[in-house]
Design a protein around this nucleic acid. Sequence first.
DNA 1: GAGCTATACTTGAGGTCGCAATCAATATAG
DNA 2: CTATATTGATTGCGACCTCAAGTATAGCTC
Lengths: 163, 163
Amino acid sequence: MSSQVLSTQETSDESGLPDTAWVRFLRAHAALTRELSSRLEALHELTLSDFDVLVQLYYAEGRRMRRIDLARSVLLTASGITRLLDGLESAGLVGKERCESDARVTYAVLTKAGVKKIEEARDSHLADIEELFGARFSPQEREQLAELLGRLPLAHTSEACST
Amino acid sequence: MSSQVLSTQETSDESGLPDTAWVRFLRAHAALTRELSSRLEALHELTLSDFDVLVQLYYAEGRRMRRIDLARSVLLTASGITRLLDGLESAGLVGKERCESDARVTYAVLTKAGVKKIEEARDSHLADIEELFGARFSPQEREQLAELLGRLPLAHTSEACST
DNA sequence: GAGCTATACTTGAGGTCGCAATCAATATAG
DNA sequence: CTATATTGATTGCGACCTCAAGTATAGCTC
């Protein structure tokens, strides 16, 4: 019983313990985010998510975005963004702006301090990413890795694609 | 100034927004773990970490491990393991066992219910992983992905490798 | 065996995040 | 125009996890 789609090509050692691409993916994520986060926090008092959000804003038109779009682009929930921005606001890195055409939406805007912050943090953080992640691969491998990872689903798959 | 090791080959679109392998890695992890976790929780009342730990025990000799080794193998901290096992213990899936030769260590042992639980959960979870992750790749690609991910560091790199 | 260090584990406090519920404003229908 | 559904945002609550500190045991050196 229990149909076999699997075949999960377990690169097992003696014991049969699974060490698949997925498990490596999980472990690598845990280890890398732990180390990167700790460095980023020590040097700049930012979490990885903070940095992510600041970068999104930095490259957005007018350095501002609707909070909901921000949430989608960094894959946080709406409530996650609310609380994350609360922190960045009280740190003076982003501000709020009302939308004139739609009173429901609020924009998050990068402040001067926010721009300064990210320009300060960027170099060291990119260097850390390079050291712990990028440097492990040749340019070709990097591209291929990006391509492979790009195939993975970024949203819920239960989207009722009937009709 | 600020030497340029970077070159981070940003596959940018119009705006210059970075969409590197690293960012895809982060996003894919967020999306996949969210979906997998929600399925696993709905069907079996287990978190991804719970499942991870149960699998480690399942394949361990005597279905038992020192808590500290468990922690290292799933990349949690010692305190993380303590609390996670608290949950699994009160659910009756694992038990504690004292070590006779060293009174400091406690073993975590899979109970009968624990074995049953993981055997129940395994098929659906592996199928979910296959659907959301594995099925995106050919066997060759899978292997290559595993190889690439296997190059990433799993522990702290600041290990003072002088001398 | 006294002192020192290292290891295994636990606990308190705090941070991040998701889900569900809620409210306000907008869009759509009849 | 009114009723209903949808969307953006916030908040209460709880889950999970880490760090720092504390306890207990083990090993090592003199």
